[in-house]
Design a protein around this nucleic acid. Structure first.
Lengths: 192, 192
DNA sequence: CTTTTTGTGTAACGCTCAGTCAAGATTGGA
DNA sequence: TCCAATCTTGACTGAGCGTTACACAAAAAG
């Protein structure tokens, strides 16, 4: 009973992601979100409770989608070096192809909102952990296949690549060009 | 001629650095800066022109000081691996010892303010470039000494370490503990 | 001592902020 | 058809924002 909702929550959150991604949390006003989503202020508050609530929803949606995309990219039956190189180079492409240089919402959130925002801390933490786990899995398979030294510390290497990803995001924001970022990727792959 | 300034600009900027470092640009209000510096609002505007102006001054001072500290740390007559390891582990110490997890102001500035703030972009850019140059120098010396393969691409490796540093800063913000960060450092050093 | 110049402190400006609320719209059920 | 529940809309609130104007204080110059 009652009036039915006129908007699609997922689509609205997607619009919110775009704004938060471009401007960050603090620099985004409710007015910006009203303009981007097409919803009235009241509807936003009825649906998400607060600016923080909508930010949390946006961060979660971004985390899930980017996590799924990354998992798909890692789930290929090719040599580790190829898989990881493609993953990192794809990230470089994303970075340099984006004229707004938004970087990664997870990274941006970590830097701008942590450790103040506990919800963001949780989402960021699990997002990075999931990425590390996914990479660990790929490394472990490679080790069993003999593609990696038998004594390779796969979790440490996975954490290393997660760190490299964060670093590339920041370097991208700082304006590094494709050549430089590609050289960094190839250097990083030398740890394997 | 005229009344003499009652405050020490450098000390005031230092206080401003602390606030911006802890809260970021957007979340810092002029009131916060008034409270932290002890200056009146009018004096701040007379001396720095605007919030942006004070932020720029803070960023520059931080950049110069941290750059000098890093240069000093790199200027040691020891094997590259030792020098770089100490540098990175010192950074890990800083990260985990800071209960506020402020990270690095340059990194924070890059993520929060770029590409919007052109002044910040310039400061961040030169700061990262200087760091890369300093590391390049160390690597080049090591290569001449035979500590590094003769065909090592020292600028690429230097960029890689700068990237790793940024990544460690973000991972620190995300709550990674000393053990994990140390493992990342040791993994990164394997590129040498 | 007076004038000129600069620094300081405060009150106030216009504006935007996040958040609220009441009135109207739209639905399902009785 | 009427009621109850839910959603939408937009005006509104009080607080806080960055910035400015101005009166006063202090120091150098004449």
């Amino acid at each position: 009973m009652g009036r039915t909702r006129e908007f699609d929550t997922e689509a609205v959150v997607e619009r919110a992601v775009e704004v938060f991604w471009r401007l960050g949390y603090e620099a985004t006003s409710i007015q910006d979100l009203v303009a981007a989503t097409g919803l009235g202020r009241g509807s936003i508050y009825a649906a998400f409770g607060s600016k923080d609530g909508l930010y949390a929803a946006a961060l979660k949606q971004y985390s899930e989608r980017s996590g799924a995309a990354m998992a798909e990219r890692l789930d290929r039956d090719e040599p580790v070096r190829v898989v990881l190189r493609d993953l990192l180079l794809h990230l470089v492409d994303q970075t340099v192809d984006d004229p707004e240089r938004r970087g990664c919402l997870i990274t941006n959130s970590a830097v701008e909102r942590l450790p103040r925002d506990r919800t963001a801390a949780r989402v960021v933490g699990t997002s990075l952990d999931r990425t590390a786990e996914a990479i660990t899995l790929v490394l472990r398979r490679a080790r069993e296949r003999g593609d990696l030294r038998p004594d390779a510390d796969v979790t440490a290497i996975a954490d290393f690549f997660v760190t490299t990803i964060q670093g590339l995001r920041v370097q991208g924001k700082a304006g590094a060009d494709r050549r430089r970022l590609t050289a960094v990727v190839d250097t990083a792959l030398a740890v394997l």
